[in-house]
Design a protein around this nucleic acid. Sequence first.
DNA 1: ATGTCC
Length: 354
Amino acid sequence: MSNITIISNEKNWMEHTAVTQLQGVADLPGAMQTVGLPDLHPGKSPVGMAVVTQGVIYPHIIGGDIGCGMGLYDTGLDGRKFKLERWVTKLNNIRELVDLPTVNPYNEPSPIYDLGTIGGGNHFAEFQVVDTSYDHTACHAIGLKDSQLLLLVHSGSRGYGQSILKRYQDCRGITGTEPIKSYLEEHDQAILWAERNREIVVVKLLDYLGYTPQAKKLIDCQHNFMEQKGDLYIHRKGAVSAERGPVVIPGSRGALTYIVQPAGNTAMSAFSLSHGAGRKWARSLCKSRIREKYDRDTIRQTKLKSRVVCHDTDLLFQEAPEAYKSIDSVIDILLQYELITVVATLRPVLTYKG
DNA sequence: ATGTCC
């Protein structure tokens, strides 16, 4: 049994099921260090965690959406000239990004079925602006500026990653140099295409909205992936690396997104950080709990005066801000454990969901 | 999470 660290405090609600699931991961043969981050919540395998194994890998911990992550882009447009109503109308006219023409700029054919789409669930594309800058030097280094319009895309490899997992999940734990190498090669392809897909979403969206895309990638960080370090393997499920520069930690669509810089204490968190606010309510419970609070239109607006374009009203209830923990408490805990410093906060202006 | 059941 490996040692377990749960990074939390008294104010942070954590579901018992998630802790039990984390214990189950820690009990797997070869598990050396198991970490629950503040956004830990139950899943098929627990989400918001990292586990370091020796000599063995567990693809089911990473799950099917290999390479899922956050791509933050500078659109090259001025946030002050942003015409909210016009863009809401235009985006309402398309069913999904699959309706828009897709150009694959790469030599290889795409293994992702609907290249340039974001998928469902908690995936989104969100226009944002800088709300508050806390570290001007770091903002400058990243390329974050006041008044610029940003686009944050949350998506992954989806069906493609799932098809990879399907071929490896029967083995509850893969050992041996060649079998591990085989999974990692396919895994790396899923990582590559998930990142390419996020960029193509950005290009398609800006093109459709009438702008010659000159988008520039500022940060791209994945939160479902495996990292090899010699004979050690860091599995991250709903957790980002703390060793690859600044990180995007989004809140719910009704909350700020944080840009953070990893700090010096991350050995205790298996060099990992939270990937978001973390789900608080099961999807199946959301609609009955907040049905009375909203109508068709008000569920498409947020406290921060931002707007949401999505044709699936049930999904909007499942992904409502109430269904998520407070991002501020997640950030407070990461600060308390000296895992991060805060660089800036971003404010959503328009969220697009599939 | 899921061309939302191979």
